[in-house]
Design a protein around this nucleic acid. Structure first.
Lengths: 302, 302
DNA sequence: CGACGTACATGAAGGGCTCTCATAATCATG
DNA sequence: CATGATTATGAGAGCCCTTCATGTACGTCG
């Protein structure tokens, strides 16, 4: 038995129109075509779908069963086609975001809240990009946007700049380094450095400071959550280097000191990587706008 | 955008099989056919459904949306086709019953209970055939079986005999007619006759007794429910003639008397009318068997 | 890094399927 | 019973889809 949507549409149309001729008009075809079609379908089904004894063709019991299937299936198809129209016109789509930068949760959540409000139809998700390589996944369309501060664009990927930030040193106010005006690589030799549990080439403190200076901290320990890192720092169990935007609560506290890295202040740029063809989609563009402006507001303490 | 089930099956197969070639095998076609098909579908959809950058073809975001539709729709179609197979093999079907004989509820319900247990897949319904002409409805496949005691078979309709019954006189034991051994037409002249609210040609007491004898009862009143008729009879507000099987509770009561119609005892036969082609269906045959045996048990007081 | 194998794309051609047109058969109705 | 409406049938044409043959790109393994 080989049923097609065409058949279901025909069944439904004949039922609604109450006759072949009217149904043919509805479906922009001829009465004869539908007659042939119904005959073929009944052949497939192995039984009559319509009662021919009364002249305006009526559904038989089996025909009603097929009509039921049509009325379940066809709206589903229509909805899908409608979604595809929206997809084509750019009103909807998918925005699955991978974050390589762990601290980015902090500003990403507020941004996504705003975004979801503006584009309720867009399928939004965040995947912590720790477990997999984000850029290849972007290429394979497993995700649609990667938040990263390493600008290494492969072909087909564009890196949209978002905002600049300063990797900032934070320590307990009891720490001797609190006396210094800025923090240099050498200062870490006697310190326990607390970082996110990712490779060094994704940690600003290493890429920007320690690795170039060939300095090793006294010890390194990791914590997954920004709040935990700050807690450990607060109890003077170690020091950390975090993007400035996560410092907004800490700056006002007497328990912590924050210092720029030096001697030259370190500035990094955050990027949102997208596939080339996606960058022009309206909702992607809107997300990028939000991701440019909102974190800056956060850095300024709202 | 013109989607067909073929396309949904293809999408699903490619996803499941993880590649065109394997999907082609699943669907008993060639890799090339699927490639052309996908190309055509993507043309329809106006966007890519698969990511071609990675070699074993993977679904894009839009492709996933279509897969979702496939996974909602295809099981529905499969279920329908399964039902049609069952329908063909006679394991299921529709049994919508029209009853012309109003008192038949009494034995029909128990029969249907048994039937439903044996054929849970069959779509069972009862329509009180008072409002419409049952036999034309049977012909038009609006119903599938008509319970009737008038054997007037039009072409294409078969009347399957079920059982014989005796239209039986029932009255209050206070009624003078309680003295008589049988009840003749003349006896109704002084009586209030209680009947179902249907035309006289469907009431045994008229067709079998009063109309031939040209006797008119003193008065006639109607009630829809058998229980109400018996209640009225019990309080001596009138007399009635009912099939013997409804008397089983009444016979043991001192409040009622039941008498045969006479002088010759009247016997009628109950029929189940079906369309010729349906009579051989296994579940119809089973219903007929039940409808032959069960009412007889009821008549005998279980 | 290069070669090979696998996987998908492409193009042409044939054939099957379905539609159209014309017409016949059948049913409803006055 | 005649007429109009409705469905069925048949033949032919055209289109779409499949197939076959081959090209191209990716992935992988040495």
């Amino acid at each position: 038995m080989y049923v097609e949507l065409k058949h279901l549409r025909t069944i439904r149309a004949i039922h609604q129109a109450g006759g072949l001729a009217r149904a043919a008009e509805m479906l922009n075809t001829t009465q004869s075509a539908l007659s042939h079609q119904v005959a073929g379908l009944e052949d497939q089904a192995g039984m009559e779908l319509f009662v021919r004894r009364s002249k305006p063709l009526r559904l038989s019991a089996a025909g009603h069963r097929m009509l039921r299937a049509a009325e379940r299936v066809l709206p589903e198809i229509d909805a899908m086609e409608e979604e595809f129209r929206a997809l084509r016109s750019g009103k909807t789509g998918r925005l699955h975001i991978a974050i390589e930068c762990h601290a980015c949760f902090d500003w990403l959540f507020p941004v996504l809240e705003l975004f979801r409000h503006a584009w309720p139809e867009v399928d939004v998700d965040i995947r912590a990009g720790l477990a997999f390589e984000a850029l290849p996944a972007l290429h394979r369309e497993e995700v649609d946007l990667v938040i990263s501060s390493d600008r290494v664009p492969p072909p087909g990927i564009v890196f949209n700049p978002l905002f600049d930030y300063h990797p900032t040193f934070v320590a307990s106010s009891l720490n001797p380094l609190a006396e210094k005006g800025f923090i240099a690589a050498e200062d870490f030799r006697d310190q326990v450095l607390i970082t996110y549990p990712v490779s060094r080439d994704k940690l600003d403190v290493f890429t920007e400071l320690l690795t170039p200076a060939k300095v090793e901290p006294r010890a390194q320990r990791t914590a997954e959550l920004t709040a935990v890192i700050l807690m450990l720092v607060g109890s003077n169990r170690g020091v950390a280097v975090l993007p400035d935007w996560v410092m907004r609560e800490v700056k006002t506290s007497a328990d912590y000191v924050t210092r720029p890295l030096g001697p030259e202040p370190v500035t990094k740029r955050m990027y949102a990587a997208t596939r080339e063809e996606d960058a022009t989609k309206p909702f992607v563009a809107h997300f990028l706008r939000l991701a440019r402006s909102e974190p800056v507001k956060l850095q300024r303490g709202f």
